[in-house]
Amino acid sequence: MREGRTAGAQASITDGPAGIWVGDLARALTRLGVDHGDGETVRRIAVLLGLRGPVPGPGPAPRWQAPSAPEAEEERRSAPPPPLRAEDAAALPDNAESPPSTTEGAAGPLPLLTPLAGASGTRPAWRFPALAERGDGPAEAEPAHHSLLPPNSETATLQTVLSRTVPEGEIDTHRLLEEFATGRPLQDLPRLPVRTLRFGTQVLVDLGPGMEMFARDQEELVNRITVIVGRHTTNVLYFAVSPLNHVGPGAGWTWRPYRPPAAGTRVLILSGFGCNLPGSGPPPMLWQEWQEVTALLRRSGCRPAALVPLPPDRFPAPLTSLMPVVSWDRSTTTVQAESRVP
Rank of each mutant, 00 (worst) to 15 (best):
T201Y: 04
D38M: 01
E338H: 05
N95A: 06
W290V: 00
A215D: 15
H174Y: 14
A90I: 10
S300N: 05
P60E: 06
G183L: 02
F199A: 02
L92M: 05
L32G: 04
D206Y: 00
R127D: 01
I13E: 01
R256W: 11
P115L: 05
G59K: 10
S327Y: 08
Q65D: 15
P342I: 12
R195V: 08
L149E: 00
A305K: 00
R2P: 05
L296M: 08
V227K: 03
T6V: 10
V161D: 12
L25C: 00
L32H: 08
Q202W: 10
S280W: 01
A46R: 08
S68D: 15
P209Q: 15
L244Y: 13
S242I: 07
G137N: 07
M211D: 04
P67A: 11
G53Y: 10
R27S: 08
R27Q: 06
D136G: 11
T196M: 13
L277T: 06
T6W: 07
F273P: 01
I13R: 03
A240E: 13
I13P: 02
T333G: 04
A46W: 10
P111D: 06
V34I: 12
Q187W: 11
S339N: 15
Q288M: 02
T155D: 14
A66T: 13
A91Y: 15
R198H: 05
D15T: 15
P62Y: 01
L162A: 14
G208Y: 04
A317T: 05
E338F: 04
D15G: 11
C275Q: 14
L319F: 03
Q187P: 13
G264I: 02
N235G: 05
G137D: 09
A9D: 08
E170K: 01
A337W: 09
P243N: 00
E142G: 10
R266V: 02
V267E: 05
D35V: 12
G16P: 04
V166N: 02
G37V: 05
E170N: 08
T41M: 09
G210V: 11
P54H: 12
P185F: 02
T233V: 04
A86F: 12
P80Y: 01
L113N: 09
P100R: 02
P150N: 12
N245L: 10
V241A: 10
A46Y: 09
V326Y: 03
Q202Y: 15
G281D: 03
T233D: 09
G53E: 12
N223S: 11
L322V: 00
